[in-house]
């Protein structure tokens, strides 16, 4: 009975996570649709969505180090956070395609084939799509051991997304570098953990 109650409260927390997680998107959409998002609303909306995609992606990468370093185990919420990252990436891409470029296929095609900055964003989105599509119980059972290997691609997505963010401004900004550093630190933690523990090499 205790387990059932814990399961139910985890479910409620997950639901609340989706609800709260989508607040920035809803708020900025309403502001933008009612002309309260500044002088360049489409650009502001696009950037807001992209930034939240990166934030949720980073949050999803924090869960393992948090568990290993502090013992706080939030792994049961990781799927929700990861899916939020995917949804924001999808909104970000949709805003760019529909609101910003007005479905101008010529420009969009040139963008995704010639501009490294856009290509990085698309690579990140493609990976997140694959991960979102296989984030259900059926796919986890079906893929077995390969599921874990597939979901390690989230590291590549984070690297691409961080560089995409850094390159989205005309100059290198402190803010974008900080996001990049956080991603680097989270990945470095994994590399460090995965490295085989060896005895110190004897002095030559």
């Amino acid at each position: 009975m205790m387990a059932a109650r814990r399961g139910r409260s985890a479910g409620l927390i997950r639901l609340a996570l989706y609800g709260i997680g989508l607040v920035p998107a809803v708020v900025s959409f309403v502001l933008g649709a009612t002309n309260r998002l500044g002088a360049d609303p489409v650009n502001t909306f696009e950037r807001t969505l992209g930034l939240w995609a990166l934030r949720f992606l980073i949050l999803s990468l924090c869960i393992t180090p948090l568990r290993d370093l502090t013992g706080v185990n939030l792994v049961r919420y990781r799927r929700a956070v990861g899916l939020l990252a995917f949804w924001y990436a999808l909104f970000h891409l949709s805003a760019y395609v529909a609101l910003d470029q007005g479905f101008d296929l010529h420009t969009l095609l040139a963008d995704v084939t010639t501009r490294p900055f856009i290509i990085l964003g698309m690579v990140a989105f493609t990976i997140l799509s694959a991960l979102a599509a296989t984030s259900n119980g059926w796919a986890i059972r079906r893929l077995g051991r390969r599921w874990k290997a597939l979901h390690r691609w989230v590291y590549a997505a984070a690297i691409c997304a961080a560089i995409h963010f850094i390159l989205s401004f005309k100059v290198i900004r402190v803010e974008t570098l900080l996001y990049g550093l956080v991603v680097a630190a989270l990945l470095a933690f994994r590399v460090y953990r995965a490295a085989p523990r060896r005895a110190k090499a004897p002095p030559v």
Binding site: L31, G32, A33, T34, N35, R36, L37, P41, V42, F45, L99, D100, Q101, G102, D104
Partner: peptide, 8 residues
């Protein structure tokens, strides 16, 4: 007009 005020 926000998002729908002016297109490119």
């Amino acid at each position: 007009g926000g998002f729908f005020g002016a297109s490119r």
